[in-house]
Design a protein around this nucleic acid. Structure first.
Lengths: 387, 387
DNA sequence: TCCATTAAACTCGTACTCCGAGCATAAACC
DNA sequence: GGTTTATGCTCGGAGTACGAGTTTAATGGA
């Protein structure tokens, strides 16, 4: 039978709740979505029959008939999430409650694109072997600029344009690709420091700066998925050429390369670890001055983006956290001075990320689950299960 | 009876189509939304019974049974749209097809906030007297920074924080407030140069620069509605203090004030008309040089925002159009050089707005219609009509 | 002129979701 | 052990969308 318009919308909403706030009880979900108890009964029964959810008795909370906790079904759908990084790749399998299982991590043997993609493809293959039909999608996070399903620029990997589709070749699975900074922002907005915010800005400094604007839990990824490259807006010195091809990129002002410049040290091969090392020397006064400048450059840019986007909250990741911690006054001053006057009375809070290393995979998991819990995807699953 | 979840979703979708593409036939709407003919019959019947739509015979297009054009019902709901500008205010009434009727325009007698708001309130009153229950909302565009239903900064009006609620006081109508630049961007994205684009960036230069990022037809308005103040990100000279309170705002680099600086003329009282006058003198070589610099500053900033947001298309309004036209080479060069390399092969088109003076009201109309055609709003209307 | 063709509207029976009301149930509280 | 409380379950009903089949109103050709 063909799916009817909006037929699975409520079921999708229920699954969305389960993914965003794992451990939620059936009664709580019903309250949240404004469902009547009869509807809740019916929807959960449907989801149970389709092997999407199971119900387990919930610990009782005072009087009243005890309710149940909604949990993913042991034969329910899963998504494979993968993160491609400079020296290694990680993967995990996600169930409908967003829990990561089967976590793996492997160093690259070779960094040639075809070798790395072959390794990822093998990972997809073994997940498919283990989970079979339950595996519905692959969500891949990469440390580089993404455009649709291509990696355009990945300085940390030393890659230029690479088609990522080989990762799922031969499996018939859809491949979702996202930038790592974008996905860590999604994690913060859904279940981290920015949870509940309608509009949130996430910025993460590693080598250069990445980030994303998140509106109602979805990243503003632009026309081709390359949105969020905040490192390449001209907040910096226009005379400096960025490896990206533009001039005066913010990127060049806020990471290890900028610290080295201020300290008149040679450009570091590994700006991330260099910056961490420099931050250890914060009691040396030239270091403190350099860190202050970089923290101020970071804060000024953030203030500009706050003016532009009016986020409810800003979350920081990576080196941005330690940079601010090392020069809190320089940061606070530059932030305040960069804001439009009317923002200064109650400026958006700038919070440290709550997810650190796991944020990227969690964000990839969130978008992967979104993909398999749309009403149309559920209709497809239902058709398959009831055959 | 209480409204059921999603009960009016399809009806809302149909009305959305009618508003976005007026003159659409019933058959076309059904195709567009993937409705079966039986559903189309039913939905239109329902909308007819509720005095939301009427059907008029469509001009026949070849063989086959003729279809009908969906038009707003003569007793259907309307929205009052208003635009508050420096010297005057304009208003119009919008029907469900987005057509503006009863257009009016009145100069301010006094520019004191209370006097202006009283005049607007009187306008609302007369619209309510004429349309009665049919008038469901007021959508107000203002030339200034908006935060929820307050105007925070309006340099062109000389106002600081002003509560705009008095405009609808005593009417019981909901007030929707939007920045003028944001709303003109909505008009471009819905039915202008950026029609069909998923992500579009709109920038309009008048005094300073305003704009908005539009995703799937909705502006990214931020937490409080102040989103889109692109003029106040630090693309400019950090030593210059902006009236907004921040330093180095882009605003200061791309309007009449910047032209005057480059020409070493005194700061103009009316930067907009000053800039238009300067552009008439483009054949003087110092003027050409100054315009080139300003056009380049505009293009460089646009390129940075393209890097950040990856829009499908950029639309220009106000002076931005004539600035680019006056210095096309400077603009094109700076645009290209500001882009990340991978964008340069196929950079987003930068198009002139198709709506000029009417864009703001059309954008306000679009958001107003959105507000009264949500499924919940339709349920309310239905309840009222069937009583 | 008349008939075939075409596209779309209409009718009817059905499936499905959600709801309200009423009832049943399982815990905590007293 | 009865009361209170929150929740789940059952049932009948309302409402939407759909498929299949039929009807309708136009065009275009014989």
């Amino acid at each position: 039978m063909t799916a009817r318009r909006g037929q699975w919308q409520t079921a999708a909403d229920v699954l969305g709740q389960v993914a965003r706030r794992p451990g939620l009880t059936r009664a709580a979900v019903a309250r949240e979505l404004g469902l009547s108890t009869s509807s809740a009964t019916e929807v959960t029964a449907r989801l149970r029959d389709l092997e999407l959810l199971t119900e387990t008795p919930a610990p009782s909370q005072g009087r009243g008939r005890p309710t149940t906790v909604l949990r993913p079904h042991p034969r329910g759908p899963v998504v494979l999430v993968m993160e491609l990084r400079q020296a290694d790749w990680r993967s995990a399998v996600v169930t409908l409650d967003g829990v990561l299982v089967d976590q793996e991590s492997k160093r690259h043997r070779s960094r040639r694109p075809d070798a790395v993609l072959a390794a990822l493809q093998a990972g997809v293959g073994s997940a498919q072997a283990k989970y079979g039909d339950r595996l519905l999608a692959v969500s891949l996070a990469v440390a580089g600029t993404v455009r649709a399903d291509h990696l355009m620029q990945a300085p940390v990997l030393g890659w230029s344009t690479v088609d990522l589709n080989p990762v799922v070749a031969g499996t018939g699975l859809p491949l979702l690709v996202g930038n790592d900074a974008t996905l860590s922002g999604v994690a913060e907005a859904r279940m981290g420091a920015a949870a509940g915010a309608g509009t949130a800005l996430h910025l993460i400094v590693e080598v250069g700066i990445g980030g994303t604007l998140i509106i109602d839990g979805s990243p503003a990824s632009g026309a081709t998925g390359a949105g969020g490259e905040y490192g390449h807006i001209p907040f910096g010195d226009r005379s400096r050429l960025c490896p990206c091809g533009a001039h005066g990129c913010w990127d060049l002002e806020i990471d290890g390369r900028a610290l080295a410049r201020h300290l008149q040290e040679p450009e570091p091969d590994d700006p991330y670890n260099y910056a961490e090392a420099v931050l250890q020397r914060i009691d040396e006064s030239p270091v403190a001055a350099a860190v202050g400048k970089v923290a101020a450059a970071l804060a000024t840019g953030i203030a500009g983006l706050v003016n532009a986007h009016d986020p409810e909250v800003v979350t920081l990741g990576g080196l941005a956290i330690s940079l601010r911690a090392a020069a809190p006054d320089a940061f606070a001053t530059a932030y305040s001075e960069g804001l439009m006057t009317f923002h200064r009375a109650a400026p958006p809070a700038v919070l440290d990320s709550t997810h650190q290393k796991t944020g990227v995979l969690r964000g990839a998991a969130a978008l992967g689950l979104d993909h398999i819990t749309t009403d149309t995807a559920l209709a497809t699953w239902a058709e398959r299960t009831t055959l």
